[in-house]
């Protein structure tokens, strides 16, 4: 049953670049969304954009490498909000640290005020780090800490040098999830159980 669930699952691998770590005060500078139908990553329907913001500071530039000049001519979040909503509606969001991305997305829609009402909840999401921890615990392997994205890339033999931007990270997250799905289907976990996984007490 679980496998049928997965084969038909509508997913969207998401990655954001932001000006900082606080959803209420910081802003999104780049969004990448790659839809997945079951095990298939649909690159043809991928969406990737930079988002105009006035809040870029040196610290965040060092982190994501996006400079104010890159954002010249980029759309505002308001301009892409419709597209983002359309791509995520009815989908299970996949990614690394999805709580963070969900909080930023919700925060961005809230800032739009009445234009965006009602604010989408993005309540269905799967965090690939949590899935990996769950898979290991099922094998009886202790999980000493939360996996970093690099840890996951290494575990699935994906090239960390391929990390260039939000689109690359969303693709790598989708690639990891493809492989995790296969393992999960063999262990009989359902999609809703995967969505409800929480970080263990470490």
């Amino acid at each position: 049953m679980a496998d049928l669930d997965f084969e038909e699952g509508d997913f969207a691998a998401v990655d954001l670049e932001t000006t900082g770590l606080v959803p209420n005060s910081d802003e999104i500078v780049s969004i990448a969304i790659i839809p997945m139908k079951g095990y298939r990553i649909l690159l043809g329907s991928a969406f990737h954009t930079l988002v105009k913001t006035g809040r870029l500071d040196e610290k965040s530039i060092k982190f994501h490498g996006i400079c104010p000049k890159d954002l010249e001519g980029a759309p505002s979040f308001e301009e892409v909000s419709g597209k983002v909503r359309e791509m995520l509606e009815g989908k299970t969001m996949i990614g690394y640290a999805t709580d963070f991305d969900r909080a930023f997305l919700r925060g961005s829609y809230k800032k739009l005020g009445r234009l965006a009402s009602p604010v989408p909840s993005f309540d269905r999401s799967i965090d690939i780090a949590r899935v990996e921890a769950w898979l290991l615990r099922r094998e009886g392997t202790p999980v000493p800490r939360r996996f970093s994205f690099e840890d996951l890339l290494e575990r699935y033999k994906l090239n960390p040098a391929s990390r260039h931007d939000a689109l690359s990270d969303a693709y790598l997250a989708a690639s990891i999830f493809q492989r995790q799905l296969k393992k999960c289907s063999e262990l009989g976990i359902t999609l809703s159980e995967l969505r409800n996984l929480r970080d263990p007490d470490l």
Binding site: L43, G44, A46, L181
Partner: peptide
């Protein structure tokens, strides 16, 4: 070419 391709995982 890549923008019109899918990446499939076949068990």
């Amino acid at each position: 070419l890549v923008s019109r391709m899918d990446v499939e995982f076949y068990k």
